[in-house]
């Protein structure tokens, strides 16, 4: 099978670029710990309200962990609990969320906090809130007629 010299050059360039991208992603994910949210823990979707930590949604200071706070959200059609929350600037926070009914998409607009919440599963993500401001929390996975009304607020304050 004949391949033009220029095509070989192009494919070598292309494959090298793909390898560089994959290496950057791989090092960031596996060495620096920047994995996409992939929590493996589960919860009974019927008993969310009585299961820790979802029985107390909101921000809680924790000790002896790799993060300083845990921020717990419960999603249901069509609301988030808590409806608004303040986070101290620079806090390292584990965001923990689940849903009581259908699938929702937990997104804090303008940040990398973006994860699917699915009934029966717990979703988690650790991040440092290092920029002050008011951030809109919304649902980015269609969940029914009030999907676009589902909202909350995170204030990052000094």
């Amino acid at each position: 099978m004949h391949m033009h010299k220029f095509e070989k050059i192009w494919l070598i360039f292309g494959v090298t670029a793909l390898l560089v991208f994959l290496t950057v992603l791989g090092v960031s994910a596996f060495y620096l710990g920047n994995q996409p949210p992939s929590c493996l823990a589960t919860v009974d979707p019927e008993k969310v309200d009585t299961t820790a930590p979802f029985n107390e949604p909101g921000l809680k200071k924790v000790e002896g962990k790799d993060w300083d706070y845990e921020l717990v959200f419960v999603a249901q059609a069509f609301a988030y609990t808590p409806g608004d929350v303040e986070v101290p600037l620079g806090a390292k926070v584990k965001v923990i969320a689940t849903t009581k009914d259908v699938i929702h998409g937990f997104e804090v607009a303008g940040t990398n906090i973006n994860m699917m919440v699915e009934p029966g599963y717990i979703s988690e993500l650790v991040t440092t809130f290092d920029k002050p401001g008011e951030y809109l929390v919304l649902c980015n996975e269609y969940c029914g007629s009030g999907h676009h009304m589902m909202t909350s607020k995170i204030k990052v304050v000094e």
Partner: peptide, 11 residues
């Protein structure tokens, strides 16, 4: 030549 240039613009 033009093809090579074009694919590199794409790249």
């Amino acid at each position: 030549k033009g093809t090579l240039a074009s694919v590199f613009i794409l790249g």
